Simulated assay, not measured.
Amino acid sequence: MFKHLALAAACVGLIACGGTESTEQPPEVTMDGREVVSIGEMVAGSPDGKVTVDMRNSNLGFRVEKGLDLNAITIICPSSRVMSLDALLVEAASQTGKAPSDYAKGITMFPFMAGSEGSEGIQKPAPICIDDAGNYCDSEREPNGSWTCLCGNPV
């Protein structure tokens, strides 16, 4: 009996000290107050487990959760290039000097479009890739001068 009381007291102590498992979601990564769409939810709602994410002319952010099959996600880049998310992250990692595994815990992508003046488009300078919490993000440049900010998701 004493053993059970001691175990119950320890559990109450853990609860009082915040030792319970939290059901709170980590803070959402946002930039410029943009709405963020969950790619994981898109995949979960897809009958075949594959989705296409169109980042052209978008005022949205796109959250890529940890553990998704990156080859099942097709990205239409701001420059209209089409590739798997896996290929995009390999390319972005080489531009930022990181390894693709650095993005394994998840990222949120925010596209920034180049202007459409002339046949080649205008070269847009790199956006300031700082999320709303003040954290710096990586930037990936498209061939037409568009950019995508890649911000790490909170763990």
Rank of each mutant, 00 (worst) to 15 (best):
77 C>F: 02
32 D>C: 08
41 E>M: 05
48 D>V: 07
155 V>W: 12
33 G>Q: 05
4 H>T: 15
63 R>F: 15
120 E>H: 07
112 F>T: 10
104 A>P: 00
98 K>E: 10
124 K>R: 13
64 V>Q: 09
120 E>T: 08
76 I>F: 02
141 R>Y: 09
148 T>Y: 04
8 A>R: 07
120 E>R: 08
140 E>D: 15
73 I>H: 08
103 Y>L: 05
58 S>M: 01
75 I>Y: 03
52 T>F: 03
141 R>T: 12
2 F>L: 15
66 K>F: 11
11 C>M: 12
50 K>N: 13
106 G>Q: 03
23 T>W: 12
128 I>Q: 15
14 L>Q: 05
90 V>H: 10
133 A>E: 13
25 Q>G: 11
104 A>N: 00
108 T>S: 13
53 V>Y: 02
21 E>T: 10
132 D>N: 01
18 G>T: 04
93 A>I: 08
139 S>Q: 01
152 G>C: 06
29 V>K: 08
64 V>A: 08
125 P>L: 01
38 S>N: 08
32 D>W: 09
68 L>H: 04
99 A>D: 10
148 T>A: 03
1 M>P: 15
143 P>C: 08
37 V>T: 10
155 V>G: 13
11 C>I: 11
149 C>Y: 05
116 S>P: 06
40 G>M: 12
93 A>D: 08
20 T>W: 14
37 V>H: 07
82 V>L: 12
109 M>A: 10
119 S>M: 15
133 A>V: 08
125 P>K: 03
154 P>M: 08
129 C>P: 04
53 V>L: 00
149 C>T: 06
118 G>Y: 03
49 G>N: 02
23 T>R: 14
48 D>G: 05
71 N>E: 12
147 W>E: 05
92 A>L: 05
81 R>C: 08
6 A>D: 07
10 A>I: 10
57 N>Q: 07
38 S>L: 02
65 E>W: 12
83 M>G: 08
113 M>V: 02
87 A>S: 14
149 C>F: 02
76 I>Q: 01
36 V>F: 02
11 C>H: 03
8 A>W: 04
155 V>A: 14
36 V>D: 01
152 G>H: 11
122 I>V: 14
21 E>G: 13
7 L>F: 12
133 A>F: 11
125 P>G: 03
